[in-house]
Design a protein around this nucleic acid. Structure first.
Length: 271
DNA sequence: ATGGTGGTTAGACCA
């Protein structure tokens, strides 16, 4: 049986409950990583998501902002929450998913957006984003080199390639596509010796535009198509040989009252 | 150059 993993910034898990259930039903997701759940753990919709097919849930939430989760049809073990930059920000949770041939480690990550001003000296939010990436980098280098199969998913809030945004020229001074962020993300993907496979780019050529986020502030998001690829699935060397498919589910962006992010899905032929 | 929308939650804050 293949293992299907998806990542989705749902922009409030309670607001998007029916859509999570529908997405899981229509795509046979085994493990769904969420970001921006926007709810404390005590109010997380455990029962509704169990009914939706995910009895195993690893959650880290706070009031109103941020919040990450891993929903699974299979048992989760070794659940950890990482408090990067010394903040209890609920931006990174990981766990191991049991398979017939051993565990697969799954990460749900929500990198700080970084505010509007791309000057880290003037904008503390952008400084925090860069510091967050700097702290994360050595940790991820270790996970890339692991013998355990690892899949890193999440809203990384960075569009690394020129074809990851609707206009490289128009966005190269806009946070999510500035050189300093793109360089850090690319360095993180390259790792130290062992690097990551960009799952979606294995199936969408690098010269082809592909997006996962479209602003709410467009009358017709699909007609304008001013999107960015902010949501990613990375695969370490131990898991890369099993990667068989990846795609963006942009049809979900057309559902009634959607998240501004579309899910990204990857399939692994885990024996 | 500006403002456009949405979620949380009750006035901003965040994206």
């Amino acid at each position: 049986m293949p293992l299907t993993v998806a990542t989705w910034n749902v922009n409030s898990v309670r607001k998007r409950l029916d859509q999570v259930a529908r997405f899981a039903r229509e795509t046979a997701i085994d493990v769904l990583c969420l970001q921006e759940t926007k709810v404390i753990n005590d109010l997380f919709p455990v029962d509704a998501l169990t009914e939706a097919g995910f009895p195993y849930q690893a959650i880290a939430g706070m009031k109103g902002y941020n919040g990450v989760a891993i929903l699974s049809r299979r048992p989760l073990t070794e659940v950890r929450v990482e408090p990067w930059c010394g903040r209890d920000d609920c931006r990174h949770i990981h766990a191991q998913v049991e398979t017939g041939t051993g565990p697969v480690e799954v990460h749900s990550l929500y990198v700080p957006a970084g505010g509007d001003d791309p000057d880290a000296e003037a904008n503390p939010k952008f400084a925090h984003k860069l510091a967050f990436l700097d702290e994360l980098a050595p940790f991820l280098a270790g996970r890339a080199a692991s013998d355990i199969p690892v899949v890193l998913t999440g809203d990384l809030n960075i569009a690394p390639l020129e074809t990851d945004v609707w206009s490289h020229e128009r966005l190269k001074r806009v946070i999510t596509h500035t050189p300093v962020e793109r360089d850090r993300l690319k360095a993180m993907m390259a790792g130290e010796g062992a690097g990551w496979t960009d799952a979606l780019r294995r199936f969408v050529p690098p010269d082809e535009k592909v997006f996962t986020w479209w602003s709410y502030r467009a009358a017709d998001w699909r007609a304008a198509d001013k999107g960015r690829r902010l949501d990613h699935i990375w695969v370490n060397g131990a898991l890369a040989p099993m990667l068989s498919f990846a795609a963006v589910h942009d049809e979900v962006r057309d559902w009634t009252e959607p998240s501004d992010h579309a899910p990204v899905r990857a399939v692994f032929e885990v024996p």
